[in-house]
Design a protein around this nucleic acid. Structure first.
Length: 920
RNA sequence: GCGGAUGUGGCGGAAUUGGUAGACGCGCUAGACUUAGGAUCUAGUGCCGCAAGGCGUGGGGGUUCGACUCCCUCCAUCCGCACCA
């Protein structure tokens, strides 16, 4: 009898569900482990085989840890707000809640078939009011806090107010928008509106008029991480800059802590590096340059204060606030024209024209703070408004961009650091000696930097500064399908709702489109007002709002009184193992770290970092097949004959190709165009070409997990996905290799049965050899699961199974532990056999077998003997022999003579237990 | 341009600390059972060579008794960032 996986898998999935095998509760007697997958956005396309890769890995890990005695939290939910459901709603009028619900049900069905060990009682959906109540709650807390740089944490805005009342903002060091100094008297003189406007500049969630990424096609603004190379990540639509009044989160306040925290977490280096670049810390100096003829100063940021004596002109970004003010009459029309043109150019054009430099002289000059020389001030869009101060001191000799600008506008180039050739190009390296630089001449670059900063600070013309590239996250979206802001407007001033009014539920609208006036969809909602009649905010929150704290909510998902109870958060603390794709490096993984740090500051969570260890699963690529059509005909040539014809390759559905042999009949039916196709065969077969590509419908190489489960079963799918290779690597899906995993499952089943399909397991005591094989497998499985190397663990199981066939072993004492160590990988077949052997409880309540070293140690060791590093023969030597005896044995051996012959033995290296190397 | 990663049979990959390179699986070859098999089992399978033997972890160089592993250098591929001052 063959293994009937369909019935057996269904049976146990049912059993696990009914008996709530995976239900998890706080248990103070057991150590906890929190194993989490990045929860999916439930798309309409369903899961393909690449999707569950990480879920399978974490599931194996979670099951393993349970058997090792840990209390494991392993939940799953849905990141359910988002654009695709809303776009679909715009097209069809179907409410996004319905689309989302349908997609979730489909996902759930697919997930269930794979046999995951999630505690579904903890499921959360970000679009559920019970859930987003706490997203809104956190927003309110962000609104009610500011960041105190002195204490390096978020503090209540009420404390800020009392500081203002005491001494204005004079001795305050807080993260804020640019703001003028005011005294306590000044504060008291402000009216309500002015006070609110002032506070807004300090809040961690704040409303401000800023340059945003506006995507007209999506009708919304986007955060920086949602834009890539001038296009929206979702949808790929062009994005432009626009000034708008928007909510933002003051992520920049946490920049240093976000950077420092990376040191303490176990994440892939590449991912940490991406975050470091994103945060973009650079140390340097801000320097003030007096503008001649004005009271104003231009503040610049530079990482190379040492090159200050090489500065020959100044540049302001077109958006810089001083540009208009300081431009002389003579140049004003030219400057205005330049600014206008540069605004017209989209980000995209600006980027594609990297090489050509543009700019315009303003007619004004600045004074050099040390020499008093006059430097011309230009406006040019190679200087970005959003970075540093939006102004630079140009040092053409030591900055390649300044160099090409200087060349174009015939500005002087003055070398101040040795090592380059300024005739040919700029010398940007931080190595060399300062020259022609007054008090720093003769110093090396690092010393010169320090000396200049010191001087700037002592004469008040500048100071040492740290600058970050990371920007505050824009938090408003002009879309329907997201969390409404718990915000209303009174006399044009925003206020947040009381916490007991949450959740503020998403209202119904007649259309999911902006209004005629261009207002967001929520402006369509009837009576979108507080009970006092104040207008509620029309924006909704972005995708990362709901995903920033879902791992916290999983700890206590049904708590209606708080985001998470003290008891739950103190027990589960944070995620021990987080598995997901690297594409979230600058989005979700930055925001949730920020969100967590804020919640940490206000005492909601107890760990400064949300995800202790993180593993990125690689992508599963598709393996595409091709047929070769003779150009201009309906004739197809087999792969190895195609050189004789003028052909073009055409993607063919991988489902009608087996082992690269085309099913010709299926091909004819596949597309009516090919119904009468002719074929040039080799050996009576049509051989297809192949290539590894992205898995995509248009390449006809998508593999669907449901089809595979139907044909081979979930255990085979799980096993094969893990066997393919290291989890973090991208690798192609080989449909043929899949059958190897299936063979293993079938062979495993047969080990327990006789030819007639009856259970056939004996009570005999195992031999030494059998025990050795078992304990080797236990050891290997243990080590490999711990380092997430599931592919090698599976090959150890295969080796073990091969051994048992060799020994013809069907002894319970060996097979039962084998079931347990295989069960995290193949839960269904092992559960079935476990029960067949007479066990009553689920195999997942059994204890992981203990590995015993004594079974593995060998009496005899086979030493490879090499001569000059080349292995020549092997020799068996008793394990208790010491190096001297081994050397003697080896040299006496007959085979040795052949390699020594007349040569002299110079040296013999013996590594006991490993190898022998003879140098002749 | 900057930063990171990866290069091992026909293919996916293994070698955890410098110690038998190619485990395990796919594919392939031959055979057994079979009406048949795309089921199962047995044997073989890095390359060259009849063999002895030689060559072999992207290329070149180095350290070492010994290098996929460490160092230098070059090449290729992938990913991230990109006028970031």
């Amino acid at each position: 009898m063959e293994y009937n996986f369909t019935d057996i898998e269904r049976k146990w999935q049912q059993y696990w569900k009914e008996n709530k095998i995976y239900k998890t509760q706080i248990d103070h007697d057991k150590p906890k482990q929190y194993v989490l997958d990045m929860f999916p956005y439930p798309s309409g396309a369903g899961l393909h085989v690449g999707h569950p890769l990480g879920y399978i890995a974490s599931d194996i890990y979670a099951r393993f840890l349970r058997q090792k005695g840990f209390n494991v939290l392993h939940p799953m939910g849905y990141d359910a707000f988002g654009l695709p459901a809303e776009q679909y709603a715009i097209q069809t009028g179907q409410h996004p809640a319905i689309t989302t619900e349908n997609n979730i049900n489909r996902y759930r069905e697919q997930l269930d078939k794979i046999g995951f060990s999630y505690d579904w009682d903890r499921e959360v959906r970000t679009c559920d009011p019970e859930y987003y109540k706490w997203t809104q709650w956190t927003f309110i807390q962000l609104y009610k806090h500011y960041y105190n740089n002195k204490t390096q944490k978020a503090e209540p805005i009420t404390e800020l107010i009392s500081k203002f009342e005491r001494s204005g903002n004079l001795d305050l060091d807080a993260s804020s928008d640019s703001i003028e100094d005011f005294t306590a008297v000044g504060w008291r003189k402000m009216n309500e509106k002015e006070k609110q406007q002032t506070l807004m500049k300090y809040r961690l969630a704040y409303l401000s008029e800023t340059m945003v990424n506006w995507c007209p096609k999506l009708g919304t603004v986007l955060a920086n991480d949602e834009v890539k190379e001038g296009y929206s990540v979702r949808g790929g639509f062009p994005v432009e800059k626009k000034k708008m009044n928007q909510w933002s989160l003051r992520v920049t306040a946490y920049a240093q802590r976000l950077l420092d925290g990376l040191e303490k977490i176990d994440w892939p280096d590449s991912l940490k590096e991406i975050q470091r670049n994103w945060i973009g810390k650079s140390e340097g100096a801000t320097i003030f340059f007096k503008v001649k003829g004005f009271d104003d100063q231009i503040e610049v940021f530079t990482t190379r204060p040492d090159t200050i004596f090489g500065s020959t002109y100044m540049v302001l970004a077109p958006e810089h606030e001083l540009v208009k003010k300081i431009t002389t009459q003579q140049y004003s029309s030219k400057v205005e024209k330049y600014i206008e043109e540069s605004f017209k150019r989209t980000e995209l054009e600006r980027m594609s024209e990297t090489k050509s430099v543009t700019g315009q002289f303003t007619g004004t000059y600045c004074e050099h703070p040390f020499t008093g020389d006059l430097l011309p001030v230009y406006v040019a869009d190679y200087v970005l408004a959003g970075y540093g101060t939006g102004a630079i001191m140009a040092v053409p000799a030591h900055d390649s961009r300044d160099y090409s600008f200087a060349k174009k506008f015939k500005l002087p180039i003055k070398e101040v650091v040795t090592g380059g050739n300024i005739e040919k190009g700029s010398y940007d390296a931080k190595e060399g000696t300062l020259v022609d630089s007054d008090f720093i001449s003769g110093m090396c670059v690092p010393d010169a930097i320090k000396a200049v900063v010191k001087k700037l600070e002592s004469n008040g013309t500048g100071k040492g500064t740290v600058n970050f590239r990371i920007r505050d996250a824009i938090f408003s979206r002009q879309r329907y399908w997201g969390e409404p802001f718990p915000v209303y407007y009174k006399d044009g001033i925003p206020y947040v709702l009381d916490e007991d009014e949450l959740p503020l539920e998403l209202p119904e609208v007649d259309k999911y489109l902006p209004t005629e006036a261009g207002e967001p969809p929520l402006a369509r909602a009837k009576n979108w007002k507080t009970k006092e009649g104040y207008q509620l905010d029309w924006n909704t929150m972005p995708g990362f709002a709901g995903s920033s704290a879902y791992y916290i909510r999983f700890m206590d998902p049904r708590n209606d009184n708080e985001l998470v109870s003290k008891e739950a958060v103190e027990y589960w603390r944070n995620v021990d193992m987080y598995v997901g794709g690297a594409e979230h490096a600058t989005g979700h993984l930055v925001y949730s770290r920020f969100w967590n740090k804020f919640l940490y500051d206000i005492g909601v969570v107890v760990e400064p970092e949300p995800f202790k260890k993180l593993i990125n699963q690689g992508m599963l690529q598709g393996r595409s097949n091709f047929v070769y059509r003779v150009k201009g005909t309906n004739k197809f040539v087999s792969y190895n004959l195609k050189e004789n014809y003028d052909t073009m390759p055409i993607h063919v559905d991988v489902n009608i190709v087996d082992n690269d042999i085309l099913d010709i009949e299926a091909f004819k039916k596949w597309n009516p165009e090919y119904e009468n196709a002719e074929f040039v065969l080799e050996n009576g077969k049509y051989v297809c070409g192949w290539d590894v590509e992205k898995m995509s419908k248009s390449y006809h190489n998508v593999v669907n997990p449901d089809d595979l489960i139907e044909k081979y079963g979930a255990d085979t799918l799980r096993l094969y996905e893990m066997f393919l290779g290291p989890i973090e690597q991208s690798k192609p899906w080989d449909p043929k290799g899949f059958e190897g995993a299936f063979r293993f499952i079938k062979r495993f089943w047969r080990l327990f049965h006789d030819d007639k399909g009856n259970l056939n397991v004996t009570q005999q005591s195992p031999t030494k050899e059998e025990l050795k094989a078992l304990h080797k497998a236990i050891k290997k499985a243990n080590e490999d699961i711990e380092r997430f190397a599931f592919n090698t663990a599976i090959s150890a199981f295969m080796t073990f199974l091969n051994k048992l066939y060799e020994y013809k072993c069907n002894k319970k004492e060996i097979l039962e532990p084998f079931l347990i160590i295989l069960s995290p990988f193949a839960p269904h077949i092992t559960e079935e056999l476990w029960h067949k052997l007479g066990n009553r409880q689920s195999i997942f309540f059994s204890e992981y077998p203990e590995y015993d070293e004594s079974y593995i140690t060998e009496d005899m060791i086979t030493y490879p003997v090499s001569f000059n590093g080349k292995t020549r023969f092997k020799i068996e030597i008793s394990a208790d022999k010491d190096a001297e005896e081994i050397e003697k044995k080896v040299l006496e051996a007959e085979e040795s003579q052949k390699w020594i012959k007349d040569k002299k033995v110079k040296k013999v290296i013996v590594v006991p237990g490993k190898i022998v190397n003879v140098v002749v």
